[in-house]
Amino acid sequence: MADDVPTFAVPPGFLGVGCRDGNVAIAGIPLDIGTTNRSGARFGPSAIRQASRMLVDGDHPTAWIDPARSLSDIGDFRIALGDIPRSLALIEAQAAPIRHLVALGGEHGITLPLLRALACRIGPVGLVHFDAHVDTWPDNFGQAFAHGSVFFHAINEGLVDPRRMIQIGIRSPMGRGIYDWTLSRGVTIVTAEEVHLGGPAAVADRIRAVIGQSPAYLSFDVDALDPAFAPGTGTPEIGGLASWQAQAILRRLGGLSFVGMDVVEVAPAYDVAEITALAAATMAFEYLALVSGRTG
């Protein structure tokens, strides 16, 4: 970013970049017709891009690289208004030719077609999943492809290897059968309380042990964070991670073979002073710092 451009005048792309040659593509996916509580995540991509202006003043403060250097913002994916199955098909088709994608949601339902596209190219992947919810319900109020059923389908369709899947920040109410089904598939669940008691370093070590060195995907639902740090989301749950805890965990995941990422469920109508959008932008920023320099 040019030194003479003030932060408030940074161009509207993520980290101020536009559509150009780059090893990593940023795309917004403004879908939220499968949300089960508060709607509004369709406005998440624009809010995250706007908040990312706060991250363009220099290099990443621990990795000492510019995460924008190999990045291209390709705009927003098309969706089918009011039609979840058609929207998922459109998202998968648009993601298919992209080698390394960072997606800005939108609701968590966008992750399913992104994993479908990825699995077609490289097979089942490991999954690092930050969330308040396990998202392994068979359906939500009769809708099979709502945002709480993403990983039920991903596991059953063989898109992820559940033995290499770890969920961090889980704390919402759920039926015991949902919890037991998830564990029975081999998924590792780390509750928010375990994060608080054990600390980021221990959680990062556990992630490394589960994921190993095979390809892995990162899905970050902003409601993994406590509503004190991320009020702008559709299904907030108290007792969540502090933003610094999530950031510290991510910074300790260098060397893992990440092949894509999404950050989802930012609903800016419920935000306060852009803190949720900035947290989401920063998690994508941290991910870019992890993969920058090895995606070429």
Score class of each variant (00 low, 15 high):
Gly13Thr: 02
Gly13Tyr: 07
Leu15Gln: 08
Gly16Ser: 04
Gly16Asn: 01
Val17Arg: 12
Val17Ala: 02
Gly18Val: 00
Arg20Val: 05
Gly22Val: 09
Gly22Pro: 02
Asn23Gln: 11
Ala25Tyr: 06
Ala25Val: 15
Ala25Ile: 14
Ala25Ser: 13
Ala27Phe: 11
Ala27Val: 01
Pro30Ser: 04
Pro30Trp: 04
Ile33Pro: 03
Ile33Tyr: 13
Gly34Ser: 14
Thr36Phe: 10
Asn37Ile: 11
Arg38Ile: 14
Arg38Cys: 13
Ala41Gln: 03
Arg42Asn: 14
Gly44Lys: 09
Gly44Met: 04
Pro45Trp: 02
Pro45His: 04
Pro45Leu: 08
Ile48Phe: 03
Ile48Ala: 03
Ala51Val: 09
Arg53Glu: 09
Met54Asp: 11
Leu55His: 06
Val56Cys: 09
Asp57Thr: 13
Asp57Pro: 10
Asp57Tyr: 14
Gly58Lys: 09
Gly58Glu: 10
Gly58Asp: 07
Asp59Ser: 07
His60Tyr: 07
Pro61Leu: 07
Trp64Phe: 15
Ala68Arg: 15
Arg69Trp: 06
Ser70Trp: 10
Ser70Cys: 10
Ser70Gln: 12
Leu71His: 00
Leu71Ser: 00
Asp73Thr: 05
Ile74Cys: 10
Ile74Asn: 01
Asp76Leu: 02
Phe77Tyr: 04
Ile79Met: 03
Ile79Val: 15
Ala80Val: 15
Asp83Cys: 01
Ile84Tyr: 05
Ile84Asn: 06
Pro85Gln: 05
Pro85Asp: 09
Pro85Arg: 06
Arg86Ile: 02
Ser87Asn: 11
Leu88Glu: 06
Ala89Val: 08
Leu90Met: 12
Glu92Thr: 04
Ala93Arg: 08
Gln94Leu: 02
Gln94Glu: 12
Ala95Glu: 02
Ala96Glu: 13
Ala96Ile: 01
Ala96Ser: 11
Ala96Thr: 02
Pro97Tyr: 02
Pro97Trp: 02
Arg99Lys: 13
Arg99Leu: 09
Leu101Ser: 07
Leu101Asp: 00
Leu101Gln: 06
Leu101Cys: 05
Leu101Arg: 01
Ala103Phe: 04
Gly106Tyr: 00
Glu107Cys: 11
Gly109Met: 05
Gly109Tyr: 03
Ile110Val: 11
